[in-house]
């Protein structure tokens, strides 16, 4: 069955490649010229020039990020070390009686060792064995704990990238999300995070890149703001460093 499905996909691919040629050629003909084979010059690529040199100091970045993130309904704390971040999560777990926790398998979190601080909680570490149903572990979790890859002050956003040890579900399915942000990763502009993906190139991109700017929300019922519609309803951004 698996083989026949693969064959079927292969057939679709052959058909798609043939179709691609006529589809693209038809665009060229409607544009009234032959298809360009060289990369066209794009003089307006990216943000306007005046924007590219714009940068805030570290203190201002923290201040602006916090203001934006709080305005979107999120919470922010600035902590001196990973140990303090651990204590913060342990205290919140006690406060909210959180039992189920899922965390990424990132080295920073390994070193933080929440497991030792919370011996009674069910703590799962993403993708540590092949048999586990990891989506279900994330779906049942009260807390999800991740370390952010970037953060952007101007928009109040946390960026997380997927990998074998970094599940997309961990920042999505739990009720409460804790994102630890090493201060060095906090940028001023969105472009400072995005440029890395152009520079990395297609082959090196992860399957999922997610910018998270607060708790999940909707205003679909009479414009009344509702928090936590599908994603986490409570989000903590914890600055460390």
């Amino acid at each position: 069955m698996a083989d026949t499905h693969k064959e079927w996909l292969k057939e679709l691919e052959t058909a798609s490649k043939a179709k691609q040629k006529s589809f693209i050629d038809s665009i060229s003909s409607k544009l009234g010229r032959p298809r360009p084979m060289e990369k066209p010059a794009h003089p307006f690529r990216g943000a306007p020039d005046f924007w590219r040199s714009f940068e805030w100091s570290e203190e201002e970045r923290i201040e602006r990020f916090s203001a934006n993130f709080k305005a979107a309904g999120g919470h922010v704390a600035r902590l001196a070390s990973y140990d303090d971040a651990k204590q913060f999560i342990v205290d919140k777990a006690a406060e909210m009686s959180a039992q189920y926790i899922i965390r990424q398998g990132q080295p920073e979190l390994e070193a933080m060792n929440l497991e030792a601080a919370m011996p009674d909680a069910h703590i799962s570490v993403w993708n540590t064995n092949q048999e586990e149903n990891w989506r279900a572990r994330a779906a049942e979790a009260d807390f999800g704990v991740v370390v952010a890859d970037y953060a952007v002050a101007y928009t109040g956003s946390i960026t997380v990238l997927s990998a074998a040890n970094k599940g997309r579900s961990v920042s999505l399915l739990p009720t409460v999300l804790f994102a630890i942000i090493p201060l060095k990763r906090l940028k001023t502009r969105l472009g400072e995070a995005l440029i890395n993906f152009d520079q990395a190139g297609r082959e090196n991109l992860p399957a999922g890149i997610h910018f998270i700017s607060g708790p999940s929300r909707s205003a679909d019922i009479e414009n009344d703001l509702t928090i936590g519609v599908h994603g986490p309803g409570v989000v903590y951004a914890l600055f460390v460093g």
């Binding site: 979107a72 956003s157 399957a207 999922g208 890149i209 997610h210 700017s213 607060g214 999940s216």
Partner: peptide, 12 residues
């Protein structure tokens, strides 16, 4: 909004 709550780039 300055950015929607989620902006996702999915590559494959």
């Amino acid at each position: 909004q300055k950015l929607t709550v989620y902006m996702s780039g999915i590559t494959g």
